[in-house]
């Protein structure tokens, strides 16, 4: 579905991606983790068509939707208008808002929404585009712990229902193992570790198998636990 071959990207003297190879299969949920500045977001922006690689090739489908860390709702349009923006059939927006549990917020202004609600609206907008690939760029990074758990469950459910291919960039190791089929650790512009996660997401946050995986990932990230 998505294929990176020998992709390199640099900003000035900084090499962000250095001959990266990556395959993401149809319907697969891949989480990408890594320390700040390891090119996670660049990888995502390349798939979204917002950046061009300096070297290498990438193939990915046209129908891509993105949920960014900031929901990017235009404050001057109502929530419903934001979700429907650019759509021919506006009724799809109503259905999508209902699917994320925001059916009564269509007439609200984005500034009246809580962080979690705004992120739901952003997901609803992604839904209406009927994408093949959904890209998530640290979508829950700014949310409180409880809302975050709810949103993870929502994304997991939507992924199952719609059969999307998902690439999610995150800082959160627990989030990665909870949702993904495969977790990739980026470092020095390449894949440092690839870890399949058994079972199918969304998993329960207190699943005992996840703790071991999480620790392995943290080790690969160079985090030492006391």
């Amino acid at each position: 579905m998505i294929r990176f071959s020998q992709v390199s990207k640099r900003y000035g003297a900084t090499v962000v991606l250095d001959g990266l190879d990556l395959d993401v299969g149809q319907g697969e949920f891949v989480a990408v983790i890594g320390r700040s500045g390891t090119g996670k977001s660049t990888l995502l922006r390349i798939v979204a068509g917002l950046e061009k690689p300096d070297q290498g090739t990438i193939s990915s489908p046209d129908a891509v939707a993105v949920a960014f860390q900031e929901p990017r709702l235009m404050p001057w349009l109502t929530v419903g208008a934001n979700v429907a923006l650019g759509l021919r059939e506006k009724s799809r927006a109503t259905a999508a808002l209902a699917e994320v549990g925001l059916q009564d917020k269509a007439e609200a202004w984005p500034l009246q929404l809580s962080g979690g609600q705004a992120q739901r609206a952003s997901l609803a907008r992604a839904l209406t585009r009927e994408p093949q690939v959904l890209l998530l760029d640290e979508p829950f990074g700014a949310l409180d712990a409880l809302t975050k758990l709810e949103m993870q469950a929502l994304v997991g459910r939507l992924w199952r229902d719609h059969g999307w291919t998902v690439v999610m960039v995150t800082h959160d190791v627990d989030e990665a193992v909870r949702l993904a089929d495969r977790v990739i650790v980026l470092g020095d512009g390449q894949i440092k570790l690839e870890l399949p996660v058994p079972g199918r997401g969304p998993r329960r946050p207190d699943d005992p198998d996840l703790a071991g995986l999480g620790q392995e990932l943290l080790k690969a990230l160079g985090v030492t636990l006391a």
């Binding site: 979204a48 917002l50 235009m74 349009l77 923006l85 650019g86 585009r129």
Partner: peptide, 21 residues
């Protein structure tokens, strides 16, 4: 510019970008 990026991803028409954004 974040909204323009959004417009790029979702392939909004120029008219839409000019008026609504």
């Amino acid at each position: 510019v974040k909204y323009i990026e959004l417009a790029t991803v979702y392939k909004f028409s120029r008219r839409l970008v000019a008026v609504k954004i």
